[in-house]
């Protein structure tokens, strides 16, 4: 069985590093990106099973990443994380076909459960 591919996008480098550190030990293939632009370039080259992205980023933001992912790979699940934990942003994110929504600080265990659930459907 192929290993699942997870993409992490957050302009805070530590977020990607920590998620990667934890997820790789679970057997996922993880790639991290610091902005939406470089992530989109990589997405056009290759499909990922799960994309975890920060909502608010300079330039290409989480919503734009979500839109492109859904265009390219409708099956790919998108999980949003954001420092702005308010209802409005959550509703906005969930309306856009988001699998899950995490306010910061992110609980890595919960993130892992969410990713597992996203993949269990296939």
């Amino acid at each position: 069985m192929d290993r699942y591919r997870v993409m992490i996008i957050d302009d805070e480098k530590i977020v990607g590093d920590m998620a990667k550190m934890s997820l790789e030990r679970e057997g996922y293939v993880v790639e991290t990106f610091l902005n939406g632009e470089s992530a989109l370039i990589r997405l056009k080259e290759e499909r990922f099973d799960v994309v975890v992205t920060d909502l608010k980023m300079k330039g290409v933001d989480g919503m734009e990443v979500l839109k492109t992912v859904k265009e390219l790979y409708p099956d790919t699940k998108v999980i949003m994380i954001t420092a702005f934990a308010n209802l409005d942003t959550a509703i906005e994110a969930l309306r856009g076909d988001v699998h899950d929504f995490f306010p910061k600080p992110v609980k890595i265990k919960e993130l892992k459960v969410s990713i597992e659930r996203a993949l269990s459907g296939r």
Partner: peptide
């Protein structure tokens, strides 16, 4: 929020 999240995630990984 961002530095707190970073500390939190690092602490979680450190323990886990």
């Amino acid at each position: 929020t961002n530095p707190l999240n970073n500390i939190s995630m690092m602490a979680q990984n450190y323990v886990e």
